[in-house]
């Protein structure tokens, strides 16, 4: 399935007002859920490619996205993430691999509902054995983590939604 087919699928689901859809073909798994998760509940859709169980090679951190075939959608960035009024998006400053915890097996830096301060580390993006600690640039509350642990992320891709403290 390519990006275009995925887009068409999503449009079809919106047109038919289908709120949840799951497809498994070979090792590609697509789950689309729209609506209720967003507080505002407006025309919202996001795509996740849930991680599959992977042999824990040397106890490595990631639960990586499925080893995907030639047609794999590169872990489609949730381009149209839920938009609650005034939510702040933390984006990735580099291309790399997303890690939610300082090391495999340790608890994540933050989880939804956690209060966060300016300068607090939210996650690590690794590229070329350079560990990039991503800091929060607002004080508030983590609403959502929008990428999976071990997932590759692009420059500028949203990582977390944070509700700034009033």
């Amino acid at each position: 399935m390519n990006q275009k087919e995925l887009k068409e699928l999503i449009e079809f689901l919106i047109e038919k007002d289908v709120t949840e859809f799951e497809l498994e073909r070979g090792d590609v798994k697509v789950r689309i859920k729209r609506g209720p998760e967003a507080a505002a509940g407006r025309d919202v859709h996001y795509v996740t490619m849930p991680p599959v169980a992977s042999p824990a090679a040397e106890g490595r951190a990631a639960s990586p996205p499925p080893a995907s075939g030639p047609t794999a959608v590169p872990a489609a960035p949730p381009a149209e993430a839920p938009k609650e009024e005034g939510l702040h998006m933390i984006t990735s400053p580099i291309v790399g691999t997303f890690y939610e915890a300082p090391s495999p097996g340790s608890p994540p830096f933050v989880k939804p509902g956690d209060p966060v301060e300016v300068g607090q580390v939210l996650c690590i993006i690794e590229a070329m054995k350079l560990m990039n600690e991503i800091e929060c640039d607002v004080a508030g509350e983590v609403v959502k983590r929008v990428v999976n642990n071990g997932q590759p992320v692009e420059y500028g891709q949203p990582l977390f939604e944070v509700r700034p403290r009033k």
Binding site: T91, P93, K129, L130, M131, N132, E133, E135, D137
Partner: peptide, 11 residues
């Protein structure tokens, strides 16, 4: 081996 750690703002 070499392991680098970075603290950065967006730019």
């Amino acid at each position: 081996g070499i392991l680098a750690e970075l603290t950065a703002e967006a730019t």
